[in-house]
């Protein structure tokens, strides 16, 4: 309901002030130089941006999210790219779409608005954040990677090396950062902008089911393996409780996706089961 009210309010504002709406795609853990092709895939981005009045008003962020969220290579880089985009396109109404750990970096900016003099100007322009499978409460898989001092290539595309971002996303570490440095979790003050969660609830890897191939069968199979470490409700990388641990629930995957299909952690950044259309219609 509050999303609906927000949309109506925005509609009025837009009509009055002719808002310039834009969308930014913020990737998850990893050091990206071509996130459009390597992280999101262009068909996903191209489909979502069709919801914009001016489809040029989109940006795909490329930053180093192997660092702690507050690091200038992470939040500092994100802030600069968002600000450059806002200034270059005259954006007055920004929807930010994050995936996984990108939600944490975005939440750092929203939670610490004066940490960097660039932050207030960015937050002022944000309508809301659509957080796809955010790792808000961390993941036991990050703990498993760090347990026993395993500093090596871990979880492939999910976690990369056991870097600072992996250490940060351990469950107990995120509990600390949520309690001290981040807003929006239970019992903490509200974030200055809405943070709406899309929660992936399962991984399907039936080789005879074409749905299992959306986003890449091998990647989904890897996620089914990781589920041994997780609760029964998980997207293969994050438990549902973590994905919905900060901000507000937008929807659980099966309630809105085509055919009621679950979104694995890989699929929640891909053109699978109508996710792109849902995001497009939200712009």
């Amino acid at each position: 309901m509050s999303r609906l009210l927000g949309s109506l309010f925005l509609l009025m504002i837009c009509s009055a002030a002719l808002a310039e709406t834009g969308v930014a795609f913020v990737h998850g853990t990893g050091k990206q130089t071509d996130a459009l092709n390597d992280y999101w895939k262009s068909e996903f981005v191209n489909s979502v941006k069709l919801g914009l009045p001016n489809s040029q008003n989109h940006t795909v962020i490329n930053c180093d999210f192997e660092q702690y969220m507050w690091d200038n290579r992470a939040a500092g880089c994100l802030a600069q790219q968002l600000l450059d985009f806002i200034n270059a396109r005259g954006i007055t109404d920004l929807v930010v779409i994050t995936h996984s750990n990108g939600g944490n970096v975005m939440r750092w900016i929203l939670s610490n608005p004066t940490w960097d003099a660039r932050y207030p100007a960015i937050i002022d322009k944000i309508r809301w954040v659509n957080a796809l499978a955010p790792s808000s409460l961390g993941t036991p898989l990050a703990d498993a990677v760090v347990d026993g001092n395993i500093f090596e290539q871990a979880l492939g595309w999910l976690l990369g090396y056991a870097n600072d971002a992996v250490r940060m996303q351990q469950v107990n570490s995120m509990a600390f950062y949520n309690a001290e440095w981040l807003l929006g979790t239970a019992g903490r003050p509200t974030l200055p902008r809405g943070f709406w969660n899309v929660v992936g609830t399962d991984v399907e890897t039936n080789p005879l089911d074409g749905d299992s191939y959306c986003g890449g069968y091998d990647l989904n199979l890897g996620l089914e393996i990781t589920q041994a470490w997780l609760d029964s409700c998980s997207d293969g990388f994050l438990e549902c409780s973590s994905q919905n641990g900060a901000g507000q629930l937008w929807f659980f995957d099966t309630s809105r996706t085509a055919g009621g299909e679950p979104l694995s952690h890989n699929q929640s950044r891909r053109q699978c089961f109508g996710l792109d259309t849902i995001l497009r219609n939200d712009l």
Partner: peptide, 11 residues
């Protein structure tokens, strides 16, 4: 079982 899993710690 597959190429991805071979490369990952968990797998």
């Amino acid at each position: 079982e597959n190429e991805l899993v071979k490369q990952t710690y968990i797998g």
